[in-house]
Lab assay of single mutants.
Amino acid sequence: MLDDRARMEAAKKEKVEQILAEFQLQEEDLKKVMRRMQKEMDRGLRLETHEEASVKMLPTYVRSTPEGSEVGDFLSLDLGGTNFRVMLVKVGEGEEGQWSVKTKHQMYSIPEDAMTGTAEMLFDYISECISDFLDKHQMKHKKLPLGFTFSFPVRHEDIDKGILLNWTKGFKASGAEGNNVVGLLRDAIKRRGDFEMDVVAMVNDTVATMISCYYEDHQCEVGMIVGTGCNACYMEEMQNVELVEGDEGRMCVNTEWGAFGDSGELDEFLLEYDRLVDESSANPGQQLYEKLIGGKYMGELVRLVLLRLVDENLLFHGEASEQLRTRGAFETRFVSQVESDTGDRKQIYNILSTLGLRPSTTDCDIVRRACESVSTRAAHMCSAGLAGVINRMRESRSEDVMRITVGVDGSVYKLHPSFKERFHASVRRLTPSCEITFIESEEGSGRGAALVSAVACKKACMLGQ
């Protein structure tokens, strides 16, 4: 009897593995994704193909990295998701002549009506938060230079001027797309009239992360975010950046690689679950690469896999709870928690219980395998993109072996128990001629924006502006 049951459990697990095998990517698959990513990057950089390229390769006008001589107080704003952060950054000489960066910050959550109302409502709310922060720190009387981390696709015309191309991540505030974001912020500050600010720089969160990590390690020339969304930036040779005049030196390019796949480059790798996630998203047909990796989508992918296993009578005796059938019910943090389970399955059992399920031991094991399959594919897909960037940098610099540091931020990278190990191992397999160091950014977005502002202020002083 026991043997029969054991055989049935083994057969069930084997069927589960057959279904989950769809998520496995072979090294040849990853090399294919990497080569296609490089081709799209090239198209994004070139003037004649930029418009139709899915990977936009947006110039950021960040050319210099901090040298350690900029000092002063800077205000930093960070808008990239449902939370908005205001930070005071003091850049100065530390002990023994070292450079020191001290920060104080406060988080504000953005109400739904500000995210989806008008641009005026959104930026009025942001300036209200700045006003509140300055009151708390008794700094209303000071006109501070301000660095703005704005983590949406922007076409820069200068370091302090950028046109919002399109909202992502659930934002829909009308009247912002096609307009200068810094102008919208300046107008809102003017409307309030109770404080003055000098907006000197606007950067993407990947750029802010790279600059913040450069402060720790001067070989950091790539910034990457794996959180709600997924994106990367890197220092490109100016001669390859056709959208900006000049051939000397390097400029940081914001790849906006989340949109890779929007022209069909990933079609052969998309599964039924991916198509369902895409169809029910706020932007169907867009940001397809990001939807395979980002935390906004990972939990939902797992939920759809679990429903398939229920329908195949391989999980929960073929019956799903009402909660499990509800879109968004299986949160991405559950994926991390399930994979963090120590082996007694308590954590998995508790999560499934909150979803109205009474799982068996085998159910718990199957749910864990589903989570591992989805998150491992995410790590491997992400590795193909980064390997594409790094191999490109090595080739354009004609280096036999390139040493490089990548600064990384984002909740999936930082909080998932195995993502970074799987990701690092896969990147290294795909970049055999590179020695890569990964560092995690601390308060990256805010500190990085302030350091970019410090560079901009120093330049302005040198130019006598």
Score class of each variant (00 low, 15 high):
189 I>F: 02
158 D>H: 08
405 T>W: 14
275 R>P: 00
101 V>R: 07
243 L>M: 10
25 L>C: 10
210 M>E: 02
87 M>T: 09
204 N>S: 10
349 Y>P: 12
317 H>G: 12
345 R>W: 15
311 D>V: 09
218 H>W: 13
143 K>A: 03
288 L>Q: 13
340 S>L: 11
11 A>S: 13
21 A>V: 12
377 R>V: 05
52 E>H: 14
221 E>M: 10
458 K>F: 08
25 L>N: 10
58 L>K: 04
23 F>R: 05
130 I>K: 01
274 D>L: 03
425 A>E: 12
452 V>Q: 15
220 C>P: 04
395 E>K: 06
301 L>C: 05
367 V>L: 13
162 G>P: 00
377 R>I: 02
292 L>G: 06
354 T>M: 10
27 E>F: 11
437 T>P: 06
331 E>N: 09
404 I>G: 04
5 R>N: 12
424 H>L: 07
391 N>L: 12
250 R>A: 15
361 T>D: 05
187 D>N: 06
18 Q>C: 10
154 V>G: 03
385 G>R: 02
348 I>Y: 06
252 C>Y: 05
268 E>D: 09
80 G>A: 03
37 M>C: 08
227 G>E: 05
178 G>W: 05
226 V>E: 02
345 R>G: 11
133 F>G: 02
89 V>A: 13
93 E>D: 11
197 M>R: 02
40 E>G: 15
293 I>V: 07
409 D>W: 03
301 L>Y: 05
215 Y>D: 14
395 E>Y: 13
14 E>H: 12
189 I>T: 07
328 G>R: 11
371 C>T: 14
350 N>T: 07
51 E>T: 09
56 K>Q: 14
456 A>L: 15
261 G>N: 05
413 Y>N: 03
262 D>N: 08
347 Q>H: 12
359 P>W: 11
207 V>G: 03
235 M>C: 06
120 E>I: 09
385 G>L: 02
221 E>W: 14
233 C>P: 03
455 V>E: 06
21 A>H: 05
228 T>E: 00
328 G>C: 05
214 Y>R: 15
278 D>S: 11
327 R>F: 09
297 Y>V: 02
31 K>C: 10
447 R>D: 02
53 A>H: 04
72 G>L: 02
138 Q>F: 06
293 I>L: 08
455 V>N: 15
247 D>L: 10
380 H>G: 13
218 H>L: 10
79 L>M: 11
298 M>D: 00
190 K>H: 00
156 H>T: 01
123 F>L: 01
424 H>P: 11
121 M>P: 03
23 F>S: 05
287 Q>W: 04
21 A>R: 10
336 S>E: 15
371 C>K: 05
47 L>A: 14
309 L>F: 05
230 C>A: 13
289 Y>E: 07
334 F>Q: 14
326 T>A: 11
391 N>M: 14
226 V>F: 02
155 R>N: 05
161 K>W: 03
63 R>H: 13
460 A>T: 15
146 L>D: 00
180 N>E: 02
182 V>W: 04
249 G>N: 14
64 S>V: 15
166 N>K: 06
123 F>I: 00
369 R>F: 11
435 E>R: 12
107 M>Y: 05
176 A>F: 00
423 F>W: 03
418 S>H: 15
141 H>P: 04
346 K>F: 11
247 D>N: 05
280 S>T: 09
373 S>Y: 08
42 D>T: 15
208 A>K: 00
384 A>R: 02
128 E>V: 08
248 E>I: 12
316 F>A: 13
125 Y>A: 03
415 L>A: 10
454 A>I: 12
288 L>Y: 14
212 S>A: 05
134 L>I: 06
323 Q>S: 14
366 I>M: 09
203 V>H: 00
67 E>V: 15
145 P>N: 13
216 E>I: 15
343 G>W: 07
142 K>H: 08
9 E>V: 11
297 Y>E: 03
151 S>G: 02
137 H>A: 08
74 F>Q: 06
274 D>S: 04
140 K>M: 07
165 L>S: 04
208 A>R: 11
27 E>T: 13
28 E>H: 15
340 S>Y: 10
239 Q>K: 08
136 K>E: 11
347 Q>D: 13
382 C>E: 00
286 Q>R: 12
345 R>T: 12
456 A>W: 14
284 P>Y: 11
209 T>K: 01
357 L>K: 06
158 D>K: 04
382 C>H: 05
19 I>W: 09
343 G>E: 06
207 V>R: 04
244 V>W: 00
309 L>K: 04
202 M>W: 01
128 E>H: 10
132 D>P: 01
194 D>K: 00
6 A>Y: 06
13 K>D: 07
247 D>V: 10
41 M>H: 02
458 K>C: 12
97 G>F: 07
7 R>I: 11
116 T>A: 07
196 E>S: 10
167 W>R: 02
206 T>L: 02
102 K>A: 10
142 K>E: 07
185 L>K: 00
144 L>W: 05
426 S>Y: 11
339 E>Y: 07
101 V>Y: 09
411 S>H: 08
370 A>W: 04
9 E>T: 09
68 G>M: 14
358 R>I: 10
156 H>F: 01
464 G>T: 09
355 L>S: 09
203 V>E: 06
230 C>N: 04
18 Q>N: 09
296 K>F: 04
300 E>K: 03
178 G>L: 08
445 S>E: 00
359 P>I: 11
164 L>N: 02
402 M>V: 08
378 A>S: 09
214 Y>I: 15
304 L>R: 13
415 L>C: 13
166 N>C: 09
228 T>V: 00
314 L>A: 10
394 R>M: 08
349 Y>D: 05
432 P>M: 08
150 F>W: 02
238 M>A: 14
158 D>I: 01
98 Q>G: 13
427 V>N: 04
38 Q>Y: 07
275 R>Y: 14
378 A>W: 01
61 Y>C: 01
64 S>I: 15
104 K>M: 09
380 H>Q: 09
308 R>T: 13
329 A>V: 15
175 G>K: 03
253 V>S: 01
252 C>M: 12
410 G>S: 03
346 K>Y: 09
388 G>H: 07
62 V>M: 11
372 E>W: 08
203 V>C: 04
342 T>P: 08
452 V>N: 04
118 T>P: 00
234 Y>R: 02
